[in-house]
Deep mutational scan, measured.
Amino acid sequence: MQGVVKVNSALNMRSGPGSNYGVIGTLRNNDKVEIIKEVDGWYEIRFNGKVGSASKSYITIVN
């Protein structure tokens, strides 16, 4: 499943599904990500070869 980031500035990509996990990357508006699965309001995603988590509130699913 594919998604597109929708933010005003930037979205942190984290090492796990929650804001208490470390930041491993930064996503910008309109970045395209691969959604692997949903976990507690977060998506596990793949972006630029990295796997991490980002809040699903800022990612829109595209077909």
Rank of each mutant, 00 (worst) to 15 (best):
N48P: 02
I24P: 01
M13T: 02
G3A: 06
K6Q: 11
R28E: 09
G3M: 03
Y21M: 04
Y58H: 12
L27Y: 00
K37G: 15
K6M: 10
M13W: 08
N12H: 15
Y43P: 00
V51L: 11
Y43N: 00
K56H: 04
N12K: 14
K37L: 07
L11F: 06
Y58C: 14
V23S: 06
V39D: 07
L27G: 01
N12I: 14
T60Y: 13
K6D: 05
V7D: 04
V39I: 12
Q2C: 15
A10G: 11
Q2V: 14
E44N: 10
T60V: 14
D40M: 09
I24G: 01
R46C: 12
G25K: 04
I36L: 14
I45P: 00
N63S: 13
S15T: 08
S57V: 13
S9R: 12
V33Q: 00
M13F: 11
L11W: 00
R46T: 08
K32W: 11
V51E: 07
V5P: 03
V62T: 11
G52L: 03
L27W: 00
L11K: 09
V62L: 13
L27M: 05
V51I: 13
G25H: 09
V62W: 07
G41T: 06
G49Q: 06
G18N: 05
N30Q: 08
G22I: 12
Q2W: 15
G16Y: 02
N30L: 09
N8K: 14
V5T: 02
G22V: 12
T60I: 14
V7R: 05
V39R: 07
G22D: 15
G25S: 08
V5C: 09
G16E: 03
E34W: 14
I61K: 07
S55C: 15
R46D: 06
R46S: 10
N30K: 08
I45W: 00
D40P: 06
P17M: 05
S15Y: 06
S19K: 14
W42N: 01
E34T: 11
Q2R: 12
G18E: 03
A10E: 14
L11E: 07
S55P: 15
V7N: 07
V51A: 07
I61C: 08
K37E: 06
K32P: 08
N12F: 15
T60K: 13
S53Y: 15
G18A: 04
G41R: 05
Y21V: 02
I59V: 07
K32H: 11
N48D: 11
G18H: 05
I61V: 12
V4T: 07
A10T: 15
N48E: 12
S55M: 15
I24N: 03
V51H: 08
I24M: 05
T26M: 11
T26D: 04
K6S: 10
I35V: 10
G16D: 02
V33T: 01
I45R: 00
M13H: 04
V7A: 11
G16W: 03
N20V: 09
F47N: 01
R46V: 12
I59Y: 01
Y21W: 08
T60G: 06
R46W: 09
S19D: 14
I24T: 06
K50P: 02
E38N: 03
A54M: 06
W42F: 07
V23M: 04
N20P: 04
N12C: 15
W42M: 02
G49F: 05
R28D: 06
S57T: 13
F47C: 04
N29F: 08
V4H: 05
G3F: 05
N29K: 08
V7Y: 08
E38T: 05
K37A: 13
R28Q: 12
S53Q: 06
V33A: 01
I36W: 04
A54I: 13
V39Y: 11
K6R: 13
V51K: 08
F47Y: 10
F47V: 09
S53H: 15
N20H: 14
W42E: 00
S15W: 06
G49H: 06
A10D: 11
R46Y: 11
I59K: 00
T26Y: 10
G18W: 01
I45F: 07
A54F: 03
V4Q: 08
G25C: 15
S19Q: 13
L11D: 03
M13Q: 02
G22N: 13
D40A: 09
G3H: 02
K32G: 05
E34P: 00
R46F: 11
N8P: 11
N63G: 13
I45T: 00
N48W: 07
G18Y: 02
G16M: 00
Y21D: 04
Q2Y: 15
I61L: 11
D40C: 10
G25I: 08
N29A: 09
V33H: 01
G49C: 07
W42Y: 10
K37Q: 10
M13N: 03
I61E: 04
V39S: 09
Y21E: 04
P17R: 03
E34K: 06
Y43K: 00
G18M: 01
V23R: 03
G18Q: 02
K50L: 15
Y58I: 04
Y43F: 10
K56A: 12
Q2L: 14
V23H: 04
I24K: 02
I61N: 03
D31E: 07
V23A: 05
N48M: 12
V4E: 05
K56N: 05
L27E: 01
P17A: 06
N12P: 15
I36T: 06
V4R: 08
V5K: 01
M13D: 04
E44G: 02
M1F: 10
G3C: 10
V7S: 13
S57P: 07
I61Q: 06
E38C: 09
R28V: 11
N20I: 10
S53F: 15
N8I: 12
I36F: 08
Y43V: 04
V7M: 04
N12D: 15
G18P: 01
V33Y: 03
K32M: 13
I36D: 02
V39W: 10
N20T: 11
N12W: 12
N12V: 15
N48I: 05
R14A: 06
E34H: 09
V51T: 11
V5E: 02
V23Y: 05
S15I: 06
N63E: 13
S9G: 15
N12Q: 14
V7T: 14
A54P: 03
E44W: 14
R28N: 12
I45L: 08
S15Q: 09
K6N: 10
S15R: 08
D31V: 06
S19V: 14
A10L: 14
T60R: 12
K6A: 08
Y58W: 09
V62Y: 10
M13A: 03
G25L: 10
N20L: 09
G16L: 02
V51F: 09
Y21C: 09
S57G: 11
S19F: 15
V7E: 03
N12Y: 15
N30R: 08
F47Q: 03
T26P: 04
